[in-house]
Design a binder for these strands. Structure first.
Lengths: 209, 209, 209, 209
DNA sequence: CATGAATGAGTGTTCATTCAT
DNA sequence: TATGAATGAACACTCATTCAT
């Protein structure tokens, strides 16, 4: 699906507003005003508000999928290093696209199987498959412990990052970073999360339970 | 604040619907219909939809706070055991009050400081203080590693549980539990999360980083 | 119609609130709160909000009627003096019962023939008859000019007083009396209106047009 | 502020209904039905019911202000003639825009300083200044009596006209004009009020008190 | 005799969407 | 292709009133 410039402007605005005020809390007029376009454009371009939401996800879907294809076959890295690279990729994705990931976390909670939840589901399944493959390889080679539930692992990685990024205020206040500019905070938290998650999983994966 | 039977019925219905469709996505009429009461009752009893939301939180606030007071002074348990007990308490709270915790996770994402976000914030601060105290004690006695960021730990515990419980569908499908009755699933996931998180933090806390 | 103490309390509160915020702008709850009684009491005692309004008018109806019966037969006073006494009575009534008269002026504007407009109409007719009788007598004795429209005269008397009393702010501000206590202002305006209206009608009534 | 045709239709309908049933007594739905438009149009065009009210006043504001600028400098007319012209202007305004002036009289009674009461206040102040200027000139040239309170004069002019026009039923019934068509009644009352008020003030202004 | 609880109808307003141009 | 105008449905909330006690 290709989007023209105006459509992209709408998508980006919607992504931001949806993440801040939620889908129901954001009116089409809000989006139109913020994007500097006519209200009717949303229906005109996307058909409906809901379809716009789907477009937002469609547009960012690639960024949800961790890229491991090349990595997996590269013998240059140890299995643990590859896990670390995956962690970094998750951290980077969340930090770089905070709006979208907040939105995704929110939508993920919706139970009824909408197109969006299906989309999220699908990507998670793919990511799960990639990581599982890697974990199994590590186990086979004796580097990783047995009995690792990769779904739980993924939950920890995304859950931890999401908690920190999306309710950032708590982290900032408890670390005296209330007024730290976004850019500097992002730099800091990227490093912090990366180090923490790696250390967390290093011992977990490599030690016998 | 004491609530009568009818008020509690409204609060429980609201808690459920808010958790499923979100605050903005749930209309007062939805709540009234589901609870079998007149629309006007919400305003009558709580003043407004927002006040009802606050009542939901007020009613469940205790369940957000982990109880560690007695535990901390009990010399019967090791520091690690105490951490394990905290993990179990978090797991139990989330599993027992899934609706409320989903709701809380949702609200936590709202940036603007409403009464509710403040309430959540406050409880998190108290929980943080309790856990920090315990961690520091463990470090002092040489059982725990240094350089532990308790805020990150909390994020991992709540984030992991939240991910699993709130987007349950993914876990169930990947574990062939699609149609498992709620009760049995809860029993299973309680054990699973408890074991996993304990094993995750055991190695992390006790090993040198 | 007799009213008990509680009913009178409601009537007086209603009179005040209706005069300030209008009939539609005043809720039964407002009246109940202000009067310190239960909301249901209004319906209980008066049947409905509208009936309460009627009770307010019923209760004050006597005060709308100018009393001229004795005066007319008293030969001690000149015809003009009697007119002056009528003017003073109007002024006194309006100043003493500002709330009620503001309310009456408001209701008078309603076109559809409610019980209240009928009541006002009736009193005005009686007052008109009394004054007409006096004017005719004055004309017969040669003291008053011919061609006097008594309805216009009444309109001038009540209209002038109403304008001054009911949009008091304008008079006060243009006469540097913004913060003058009500009691002092009433004393002042009573004298002022009395003198003015007498002087206005003296020349008008006695001179040939 | 310019209003398009549809906006004017709404304003005129609102003016009429507000004057008959009052602001609080008129629902936006009433206006929409009467004007043959959708309920949402009121908010769409004016923002709110209250803003619509303001628009009504804004639209008619000019008609509240008596125009005396040119007149005052014209030496062709005597001071009394000029007063007479002012009287005629007030009579004409009230007769021509009965709905609006009834509405204005109603609003004038509201105590709290809304935008509208402020607007009325302001116009009254301007009118007062114009008339005062004229009266003072007449006094200086010896034509008018001293000690004339112009505020009271204005109250008499507007109060008298308002009483007659706004509770028209009383005048019509006492003058056997119950079923006289509006147009003919207006013609009659215009003449009547004009003659009456002129005669009333002629003697009052020119005689020594 | 008095009232707290409850309700259906109605309030002003906002909404996503449609449509003529 | 793009939009201002318009709309019906839904929104949270308030209302006067009723009724069981």
């Amino acid at each position: 699906m290709e989007f023209n410039e105006k459509q992209l402007a709408i998508i980006h605005t919607a992504e931001k507003l949806f993440s801040v005020t939620g889908f129901d809390g954001t009116s089409v007029r809000d989006i139109a005003n913020e994007a500097g376009i006519n209200v009717a454009m949303v229906s005109y371009y996307f058909g409906s508000k809901e379809k716009l939401m789907e477009a937002v996800f469609e547009h960012r879907t690639n960024q949800m999928r961790i890229k491991v294809e090349n990595m997996l076959q590269n013998d240059q890295y140890s299995h643990l290093d590859k896990i670390f690279m995956i962690i970094d990729e998750y951290v980077d994705k969340f930090v770089d696209r905070q709006d979208f990931h907040k939105l995704m976390m929110r939508e993920q909670f919706n139970e009824k199987g909408t197109l969006i939840t299906d989309l999220i589901h699908e990507v998670k399944l793919k990511n799960l498959a990639s990581i599982t493959k890697l974990i199994r390889a590590g186990q086979k080679s004796g580097n990783f412990a047995k009995n690792i539930d990769v779904v739980l692992m993924m939950a920890t990685i995304t859950g931890t990052i999401s908690q920190i990024i999306n309710s950032q205020r708590f982290y900032r206040e408890t670390h005296s970073m209330t007024d730290l500019p976004a850019e500097e905070f992002n730099k800091h938290i990227r490093k912090k999360l990366s180090t923490y998650l790696k250390s967390l999983f290093k011992t977990f994966l490599t030690n016998e339970a």
